[in-house]
């Protein structure tokens, strides 16, 4: 009985960590530009497909492909920002969000021109197939590697925003674009970097999710929307919030599926319960668990 409980807990933490990584891209862009990138799911899918193309078609080892895809997506996202969004700096946020909706359609169209739009693929097996078990609880190597990568990425980005000069300048831009410019911070450069780092994290998330679900465009791009409540719950601009909210959602889903579904005439609670809890939490913390409540003095 207890091992069942711990299995659900561990599975929830694993799933939650991967959600957090997928949500990180939203946070990184919002943190520095206050923009919600609704095309994030397409970038997650693109990252996974680039990894597969480098391994399956070019023949590069998967570990290297994974790193290369992050680099490629870094520059790809930076280019997207430069081409489509740079001119919108200073424009109302809603205009920029609408552009990201357009971007979603453009990226969809581009992916549909490739075989990934309508054909399914899966990564070659590169991790041991044996389970890692302890005390009746087991996880796969794929999940463990996913959690480790998530931890490294989230730790790295947290340090970056807190300690590095570039990270601090990104936070400054988020606070006040005009004040940042007046002290010599290049706002366009910061925006480009925010998109680039979001692209990098999206590629990592795409690689991990693709390894779990297989490479199906519909499934991969849907994660951009699936993790949206996590971003809201954690607080749009908080990396720690994304991690905590991701884990909360993952654990709730697993417990709902494990204890509620199939009992008391209930079904599909794993899909609904996280949203109910999200609504309850937002009633008390409207800015999310770790979101900043801005107070303006007039």
């Amino acid at each position: 009985m207890m091992s069942y409980f711990f299995q659900l807990l561990v599975s929830g933490i694993v799933v939650g960590s991967i959600y957090a990584l997928a949500a990180l891209g939203f946070v990184l862009i919002y943190k520095s530009s206050k923009v919600l990138n609704l095309a994030h799911g397409q970038i997650i899918a693109a990252g996974a497909f680039i990894t597969y193309a480098l391994t399956g078609w070019v023949g590069i080892p998967i570990y290297l492909s994974f790193l290369l895809s992050m680099v490629i997506t870094f520059f790809l996202a930076m280019s997207v920002e430069k081409i489509f969004l740079r001119r919108l700096i200073g424009e109302p946020i809603i205009s920029i969000i609408m552009v990201t909706i357009g971007l979603m359609s453009i990226l969809d169209g581009i992916i549909f021109l490739t075989p990934f739009g309508s054909v399914n693929f899966s990564f070659p097996q590169f991790l041991p197939q044996e389970l890692i078990s302890f005390g009746g609880v087991s996880i796969s190597w794929t999940q463990l590697v996913g959690v480790i990568i998530t931890a490294i990425m989230i730790g790295g980005f947290s340090w970056f925003f807190k300690k590095s000069t570039v990270g601090i300048s990104m936070r400054a831009v988020s606070d006040d674009q005009f004040a940042s410019m007046s002290v010599g911070i290049s706002v366009p450069r910061v925006f480009g970097l925010a998109w680039a780092t979001a692209g990098l994290s999206a590629a990592a998330a795409g690689g991990i999710i693709g390894n779990i679900t297989g490479l199906n465009f519909e499934t991969l791009q849907a994660f951009g929307i699936t993790v949206f409540p996590i971003v809201i719950l954690g607080g749009l601009d908080s990396i720690l919030g994304a991690v905590v909210a991701g884990i909360i959602m993952g654990v709730i889903q697993q417990f709902a599926s494990g204890y509620l579904d199939g009992n008391f005439g209930l079904n599909g609670t794993a899909e609904v319960l996280p949203y109910i809890i999200l609504l309850i939490i937002l009633l008390f913390k409207p800015h999310g668990l770790f979101g900043i409540h801005e107070i303006e003095r007039v």
Binding site: S11, T226, Q253, Q254, D261, G262, N267, A270
Partner: peptide
Amino acid sequence: VVVVEHGKDLDNTAMLKR
């Protein structure tokens, strides 16, 4: 025994064990 309507699951451990 049961009818499961699935979502976008990343891990089916709970459901399978149940």
